[in-house]
Amino acid sequence: MDSKKVWFVTGASQGLGLHLVKKLLDSGYWVAATSRNKQALIESVGKKNEDFLPMAMDLVQNTSVKQSIEEAIAHFGTIDVVVNNAGYSQIGTLEELTDREARNNYDVNVFGALNVIRNVAPFLRAQQSGHIFNISSIGGYVGNFAGFGVYCSTKFAVAGLTEALSEEMKPFGVHTTLVYPGYFRTSFLSKGSVKTPSNPIDTYKAARDMEQAHLNDIDGNQPNDPEKAAEVLMHLSEQENPPVHFFMGEDAYQYAGMKIEAIQKAMENNKVLGTSTGF
């Protein structure tokens, strides 16, 4: 393990990002970590030193992202591994969410990641090496959760752009990995992290039931350990040929397997009709 690689981690003041940053520092890596609240990072991890650079960054502002990446490179001399981890879950049916609620979720989950990619890619290309992790969700592969359509669609978008990014960066020796985590026991579903609709429609019983299940039952009882997730990401970064698609957690494997089976069945049942369009 090259323990002196430089990691750039977004959304690092809580959740999976915080666990990852702590594990990286304990393992001897150099870490540049960003959050909207720099003080929260310092209180959770520690003050700036030769190994750790905490930064306040507004993910949805391209200028702020550019400045943070340049600051990290000025401090450490390079960036080797990028983790686009920042994001949040916006609950609500497609009808009840306002335009602003939906766009805000896309601004952070999709366009925020794009801002990071846009500004870090020139450095990775120039050094002909690096690894970009884009953290999606099992909800970026399986979207049949009532009340989570907008959130899932942001993660589907991350999946789509990551597949293209892997092909674009491959000629420059830069690896790209799309991570689909299942449910991890972090603050992701806690109040202050997850957002609920400002104008809920009670008629959507399935969506309300799904919402309450996540907020009251799943939160605090998630089956996966974020400490182990951090270790997994570190192992992936050390692989000579890391995967483009990586499902993380037994639940992620179960959900993905059910969708693959359903798609294969639908394709087989409709193969004659579906392939009848040629000249």
Rank of each mutant, 00 (worst) to 15 (best):
F123I: 13
I132H: 09
S129C: 12
L97V: 00
K155F: 01
D58F: 03
N144M: 14
G173N: 09
L165K: 14
S44G: 15
N104C: 08
T154I: 07
E43L: 07
I135W: 13
D51S: 13
V142W: 00
F76R: 04
A164F: 07
K155Y: 03
K48A: 14
F111Q: 05
L53M: 11
K47V: 15
G77S: 06
V82E: 11
T93Y: 08
V108D: 12
M169T: 06
T63F: 03
V45N: 01
R118T: 05
M169D: 09
I79G: 03
N115R: 11
G160F: 02
G87Y: 05
T63H: 14
G46N: 02
E95M: 12
G139K: 04
L97T: 01
C152F: 10
F133T: 09
Y88W: 13
G182R: 07
F184S: 05
G139Q: 04
F133G: 06
N134T: 01
V60R: 04
L41A: 01
I69R: 07
K66N: 02
I42E: 12
N109M: 06
S136F: 01
D107A: 14
M169E: 11
V65I: 02
S89A: 15
V108K: 12
Y180C: 10
A86Y: 09
D80N: 13
M55I: 08
V174K: 04
N49L: 15
E101Q: 14
G92T: 08
F76N: 04
F76M: 03
I91S: 08
N104L: 08
A86K: 12
K155L: 08
R103C: 07
P181N: 09
V108T: 15
P181S: 08
S153Q: 04
D99S: 13
N49P: 11
V120S: 00
V179G: 02
G160R: 11
A74M: 03
K170A: 15
I69M: 07
S153F: 04
D99Y: 13
K47Q: 15
M169I: 05
I73E: 04
S68Y: 02
T93H: 10
F172Y: 15
N134C: 02
A86P: 11
F111M: 12
E163H: 08
I42G: 00
G87D: 07
D107I: 12
E101H: 11
T177N: 06
K155C: 04
G140Y: 10
E96H: 05
F145R: 03
G140N: 11
F172K: 14
A146H: 03
E43C: 03
K48G: 09
T154F: 03
D51I: 13
V142E: 01
V82I: 15
L41E: 02
E101R: 10
N115A: 06
I42F: 03
